[in-house]
Design a protein around this nucleic acid. Structure first.
Lengths: 193, 193
DNA sequence: ACCTGAACACCGTTCAAGT
DNA sequence: ACCTGAACACCGTTCAAGT
């Protein structure tokens, strides 16, 4: 038998990734070690390396897993302003579910903030709805993401207060500024400077 | 003699902090270890613990050192909009000088982003100039900081492009939105939502 | 194919001992 | 007062060996 003495079933990557996410959520990224994870899975530490190339690769996997679980609002026909607010709130909810991982991602360049993530697709759809021209889509969504993630990051760090009421207020201020900027043609502002 | 066999002079905390900052700038926070730092200073690793309580305390010290070196624009009588842009650019320059440390700070709650830092004092002065009422000063500066740090963070991660021209554009978009928001009474927007 | 144990090169930190 | 060496409890990862 090739199966572990301590377990009935062989390891698989989903199980590994789910357990790792649990550890990160509970104890932060520095609370995740290959050895603790192996213990959690009742397996020899070295067995993990048969499914994952390194700890860094594992963390990429964990990020992808968490991203896939994020629930995003679909096009419900409401005006783009409201849809933009709904998206910001959904993203904020996701960040609060996995604060340690979220912060980790934002400190590590190549983590799965890639363009194919559904988050970006939803965002671009809403911006098209808002009338942002195709050639400005990229920069506008980047700036907008930077704004919202800045707010979220401040809140996760406890820099901005974290009670739901104040949170809503801050996100609203942010979205309101962005909305106003878009309505007034924010893209043009950059060219001025 | 109480002095190291390998060095003529005793260790002091400024020397430690400066060397640690050098290491972090060169190799990221994970490139700093007590042992490497000791080697850099030609000293036994354990000697460091006579000047610094732990690695975490050392990093706080390093952050404070870097913050003290940041050069901030003083009140030159220009309109608040221009002063705000100048402050954002100065902060961005600082972040680019110490990217690894900057990202580290923004992933660690209690790092010296405290209210007494001169950055915050300059920011509040400019916002007063902009006519932000005293009771809104705190939240407005928090949101504003969140915006600018979001932009900077995106750029450091290579998510937004990093050439000076594009950088200036993005920061300008951000500041422009904020300026417009302030002029239009952004604080009120929060209450609406 | 999948798992394992021993081993290597690193960590941060404690402690008792040196001058 | 300041420095040191040995030791402890952890890391991630390699490698040769087991079924």
């Amino acid at each position: 038998m090739a199966v572990s003495a301590r377990r009935g079933t062989p390891l698989n990557i989903d199980e590994i990734s789910a357990a790792a996410l649990r550890l990160v959520d509970a104890g932060g990224v520095e609370g995740l070690s290959m050895r603790k994870l192996a213990a959690e899975l009742a397996v020899n530490p070295m067995s993990l390396y048969h499914h994952v190339e390194s700890k860094e690769a594992l963390l990429e996997l964990v990020c992808a897993t968490a991203a896939r679980r994020m629930s995003l609002p679909s096009d419900d026909g409401r005006p783009w302003q409201e849809q933009l607010r709904a998206l910001a709130l959904a993203y904020h909810r996701h960040a609060r579910q996995h604060p340690a991982l979220w912060i980790y991602v934002h400190g590590h360049p190549r983590m799965v903030a890639d363009r194919r993530m559904s988050l970006w697709q939803v965002l671009e759809r809403i911006l098209r709805l808002a009338g942002v021209p195709e050639e400005e889509l990229r920069r506008t969504s980047d700036v907008l993401y930077a704004f919202v993630s800045g707010i979220i990051s401040s809140q996760l760090r406890g820099h901005l207060p974290d009670d739901p009421e104040e949170t809503g207020r801050s996100l609203n201020i942010a979205v309101e500024l962005i909305v106003r900027g878009l309505e007034g043609g924010a893209a043009g502002a950059g060219a001025r400077g």
